[in-house]
Simulated scan of single mutants.
Amino acid sequence: MKLQSQLRGDAVHVVVDEERIDSAVAIRFKEAVREQAADGPARVVLDLRNVEFLDSSGLGAVVAVMKLIGAGRQLELCNLTPNVDKVFRLTRMDRVFTIHDTYESAFPERQTIA
């Protein structure tokens, strides 16, 4: 599971560098994000710009990450591709997560992507 993370002010920015989050990678995804976000700031922003496919197992893994990061912390999403955005809207999970259209809207104090 390829992830890149960096502290950005009050958040940790985690970029998922995979095309798919499905049943084949869901468990590894969940554990990898948990490790990247462990003991970090209150906000965890999961950047899904590279993810073109997310199935129910992948959606379940994202929800599991939200629970794993713990109370008092928030998992936010940004840069959803059209297919992934559709999954979140159809399942109404867009009401559970804060979803930012762009990196800039998730991190308004920073205007460049590293």
Rank of each mutant, 00 (worst) to 15 (best):
R28M: 14
L54A: 04
A32I: 07
A32Q: 10
D47S: 00
G58E: 02
I27L: 10
S57C: 01
R28G: 15
V44F: 01
A32D: 08
A32C: 02
N50T: 11
F29A: 06
L59K: 03
V62T: 00
N50Q: 14
R28L: 14
P41E: 02
E31R: 15
F29I: 02
D47N: 09
E35Q: 10
N50V: 08
V62R: 00
Q36R: 13
S57L: 03
V33I: 06
A38M: 12
F29Y: 05
D55N: 12
D47I: 10
L48S: 08
V44A: 00
G58D: 03
V63I: 11
G60I: 00
N50W: 10
P41L: 00
I27G: 04
G40A: 09
K30I: 05
N50A: 14
A42P: 14
A42R: 14
V51K: 02
V63E: 07
V51W: 12
V62D: 02
R28Y: 13
A42E: 12
V45S: 15
L54K: 05
K30M: 08
V44R: 01
D39I: 06
F53K: 12
A32K: 11
I27C: 06
Q36D: 10
E35L: 08
D55W: 08
Q36M: 10
P41K: 04
V45D: 13
A37Y: 00
S56K: 05
S57E: 02
P41G: 01
A32N: 06
I27V: 09
V33L: 12
D47E: 02
D47W: 02
D55Q: 09
D55P: 10
F29C: 05
A37E: 03
E31S: 11
K30R: 15
D47T: 11
A38H: 13
L46A: 03
Q36K: 14
L48Q: 09
A37F: 07
S56C: 00
K30A: 12
F53W: 13
E52L: 00
V62H: 05
V51N: 08
S57K: 04
V33Q: 11
A61F: 08
R43V: 04
D55L: 07
A38R: 13
V45H: 15
K30C: 09
I27M: 07
A32Y: 09
K30H: 09
V45F: 14
G40D: 06
V62E: 04
F29D: 00
R43L: 00
A32G: 06
V62L: 00
Q36S: 13
A38I: 12
K30P: 03
E52Q: 06
R34F: 04
A42M: 11
E31T: 05
R49L: 04
K30Y: 07
V44H: 02
R43A: 02
I27H: 11
R28N: 15
R49P: 12
A38V: 12
F53S: 04
D39W: 14
A42F: 07
V51C: 08
L46P: 06
V51P: 15
A42V: 05
L48W: 01
I27Q: 10
A32M: 01
G58K: 11
G58N: 04
L46K: 07
E52P: 07
A61G: 13
G58M: 07
F53L: 09
A38K: 14
E52M: 03
A42C: 10
R34H: 07
